[in-house]
Design a protein around this nucleic acid. Sequence first.
DNA 1: CCTAAGTCCTGAGTGC
DNA 2: TGCACTCAGGACTTAG
Length: 273
Amino acid sequence: MPELPEVETVRRGLAEVLGGDAVIARMELRRRDLRAAIPRTLPARLAGQRVLAVRRRAKYLIIDTPGVSLLSHLGMTGTWRVAPIGDERDHDHCYLHLADGRRLAFRDPRRFGLLDLIEPGGDARHPRLRGLGPEPLDARAFSADYLAALCAGRKVAIKPLIMDQRVVVGVGNIYAAEALFRAGIRPTKPARRVRREALGALVESIRSVLDAAIAAGGSTISDYRQAGGEGGWFQHDFQVYDRAGLACRRCAAPLVGKVLGGRSTVWCRACQR
DNA sequence: CCTAAGTCCTGAGTGC
DNA sequence: TGCACTCAGGACTTAG
């Protein structure tokens, strides 16, 4: 669910909650079988650890402590929230009890999410982080040159290509569709057929749509919430996502939709070539 | 019955 | 034929 803007918004919320030397007194596991099993050793490793930082890499959240880092992925329906005692819900899989009495809950109905540990300084060796592409907001690493090199000779459609986390991280089904609309590129176009200038526009569009969505606190469809429980607002700015059959906001032609790479995809035949 | 913000795996196909 | 890589499709799960 959450793509980069939603994960970044959650990161900022968690950083605020955990700032000022928060200490994790105890991790309480209620259910271990998420996408992968939560390691049995994780609660013991986290107990008594002081939070040093809350980071994001791709769609992963990383809470650093001196002894171990906690890695989480929200999958499609994952949320972190401040959960006062008494606020227990179905699908709360894990509670982090802080030393000051507050409590964080990880809730994920579909269980496509993930909790794991990273050894200190071990990001590059972690199997889920190894092999990830560059951060899209890093203009130096994610450039038109870089994307053009990865598109060369590729028959795959441009939309699934930019959703491939080995190519660039953080772009999912919503923001891929929105960035392609902004860049005027048809999502089904084979990557090798997209012109160099259009790839430059796409790189800029990915950055601009992600920046705008972060500024809006992400997009709330059903489950996504910020750490404080608020929804995001960017869903009101969608130009194409979930708008198949409706009028293009730019030219009023009906938007078309089809399944591409297993994901629903919407675009404007007139505005996107 | 259908759909859904994401990976992850398998198997078929391609090119050297 | 073998190997490496690419690409499409399905699986996982719960809720609305």
